[in-house]
Amino acid sequence: MPLLLRALKYARAGPYSAVGVLLGVLILLSGGTWRSWRGTLEFGGGGFGRLVSRMPQPLRFSAMTLGHVILGVDTAALADLRPHEHVHVRQYERWGPLFLPAYLLSSLVQLLRGRNPYRENHFERQAFALAPARRAMQRDPGRG
């Protein structure tokens, strides 16, 4: 990918990535770990993971993405959900600063329709649909 195009994608997702890095530092300070993986930073575990795991169901999550930063409850969740979360990274690159408002609006629309605001969210449906293909490509890089 041309360097300029890659830089533009990182810049579009940059504000959310900055928030993710700040949260990542808090995860590290709580005993968590980090690693770099294919253009993203992953933070997880520690007190953050324990806190999120105890949250009530509507707020609990195993991993979430902010720009090019993925936050997870532990390294196993990060590894398992990596293909799904990388779809969200591409969505941040495509939508830029509009991603989070569009994501929240999609959830609100589904909630008002009486549907599951997470599972029926347009962006989540796309991530669930594309993640199996990405997982297969990770196992066999020659595919796709």
Rank of each mutant, 00 (worst) to 15 (best):
G46T: 03
G46M: 05
G46L: 06
G47A: 05
G47L: 01
G47C: 05
G47H: 06
G47V: 02
G47P: 08
F48A: 01
F48E: 01
G49C: 05
G49P: 07
G49Q: 09
R50Y: 03
R50K: 14
R50T: 01
R50H: 11
R50P: 03
R50A: 14
R50G: 08
L51Q: 04
L51P: 02
L51T: 12
L51W: 14
V52L: 04
S53M: 06
R54M: 13
R54N: 12
M55N: 00
M55V: 07
P56I: 11
Q57P: 14
P58Q: 07
P58N: 12
P58C: 10
P58T: 12
P58M: 06
R60T: 07
R60C: 02
R60A: 09
F61V: 09
F61I: 10
S62T: 09
A63D: 02
M64P: 00
M64T: 15
M64Q: 12
T65W: 01
L66R: 00
L66H: 02
L66I: 11
L66Y: 06
L66A: 11
L66T: 10
L66S: 03
G67N: 10
H68W: 13
H68M: 06
V69T: 14
V69M: 05
V69S: 04
I70Y: 03
I70W: 01
I70D: 01
I70H: 01
I70Q: 00
L71P: 04
G72C: 14
V73H: 04
V73I: 15
D74G: 05
D74H: 12
D74S: 08
D74N: 15
T75Y: 05
T75G: 13
T75C: 01
T75N: 10
A76Q: 14
A76S: 13
A76Y: 11
A76R: 15
A76H: 11
A76F: 10
A77G: 04
A77D: 11
A77T: 07
A77N: 07
L78S: 06
L78I: 12
L78Y: 10
A79E: 15
D80F: 12
D80A: 15
D80C: 02
D80I: 00
L81R: 13
L81S: 11
L81D: 13
R82A: 14
R82P: 00
R82T: 04
R82Y: 15
P83K: 12
P83N: 07
P83F: 06
P83A: 10
P83Y: 09
H84S: 11
E85V: 11
E85M: 09
E85Y: 04
E85G: 12
E85L: 09
H86I: 08
H86Y: 13
H86C: 12
H86R: 14
H88A: 08
H88D: 10
H88W: 07
H88S: 08
H88E: 10
V89L: 10
V89M: 04
V89R: 07
